[in-house]
Simulated scan of single mutants.
Amino acid sequence: MIITFLGTGTSQGVPVIACECEVCTSADKHDKRLRTSLLVEAEGKVIVIDSGPDFRYQMLRAGVKHLDAVVFTHEHKDHTAGLDDIRAFNYIQQTPMDVYAVPRVQEALKREFSYIFAEYQYPGIPKLNLHTIGLDPFKVGPLKFTPIEVMHYRLPVLGFRIADFTYITDAKTITEKETEKIYGSKTLVVNALQKEAHISHFTLDEAIAFAQKIGAETTYFTHISHRLGKYADVSRELPENIKLAYDGLKLEL
């Protein structure tokens, strides 16, 4: 299985225009973060977790020429806004895109992209096959996804365990029942927004504490705000087996 971090950043706390902080003006490629998204490849199948506003550019930048499915963690626009751009894969592959989401997220997609689901459809719009998921494991191609429910303030969000790899974004709290699903993971990815307290995201210290509780061989932090600091500076503060992820990072598991 090959994991590629398409994006490790977030809209949360990031000025849209003319930010002159040390992160936004950094020349280090590790500080250039698009919105959080993950590419999973296994046995010829290619799956994306979340399609945020940067989805089209992320696909082009990563050279993705085939896509089998999109799996959604939750309905916030920084994770769904790029869904329209699956139309390119519809055209090339001549097949609808498999999309996996809980019913609440499906309803949000139907509101935000109503033209996709309209009775009378304009030629060339995206074509989807919606698959309903919950907290039970499900398969996408050869891969078994085990959903992990985390709380993003009061909003349930899904993380996913795939074999010995666990991916969690937008978490603030996780029950012990759901945490049980994560133990034994060799590689953990979890959000670490900033150092200051936040109502709906792990802080850096909270993410470190959670990583140490899980005890994975390696943990990567994602969904990183510019407020966290520069990649090089923060990396020096982290325990040896905990790292910051960055756009383009590729793992072979």
Rank of each mutant, 00 (worst) to 15 (best):
Q106M: 03
F72M: 03
R56C: 08
D50C: 04
V70R: 03
F55W: 01
M59N: 09
K110P: 01
F113P: 04
D68A: 01
I49N: 04
A101W: 10
L38V: 14
V40E: 12
I49R: 10
Q94E: 15
L38R: 10
G82F: 10
G82I: 01
K45D: 13
V64A: 06
K65H: 09
S37L: 10
H79C: 02
F55Y: 12
R104C: 05
A88K: 12
E112H: 08
D78Y: 11
K65G: 11
I47A: 05
I86N: 03
V46S: 15
Q58W: 09
Y57R: 07
S114Y: 02
H66K: 14
H76W: 03
V48R: 13
A69K: 09
V71A: 03
N90Y: 02
I86Y: 00
G52S: 06
Q58D: 13
A101T: 07
I47Q: 10
L38E: 14
E107V: 00
V71L: 02
M59C: 09
I49C: 10
D54H: 05
R87Y: 11
R104G: 12
A88S: 13
V46D: 11
R61M: 12
L83K: 05
S114Q: 05
G82V: 05
K77Y: 06
V46M: 08
V70N: 03
Y100L: 03
I47C: 12
K77V: 12
E41M: 02
V70C: 07
E112K: 08
G52H: 00
P96M: 04
Q93I: 07
Q94R: 15
K65C: 08
A88F: 10
I47D: 05
V40H: 11
I86S: 04
V70M: 00
V40G: 09
A88Q: 13
S51H: 00
E75H: 10
D50I: 00
I86V: 15
K77T: 13
D31Q: 08
I49K: 08
R56N: 07
V102M: 09
K45W: 14
D84P: 05
T80L: 03
G82Q: 01
I49A: 08
Y91D: 14
A101N: 08
M59A: 12
K45M: 12
Y91F: 15
V48Q: 13
E41Q: 15
D68V: 05
R104V: 05
V40L: 15
V102F: 05
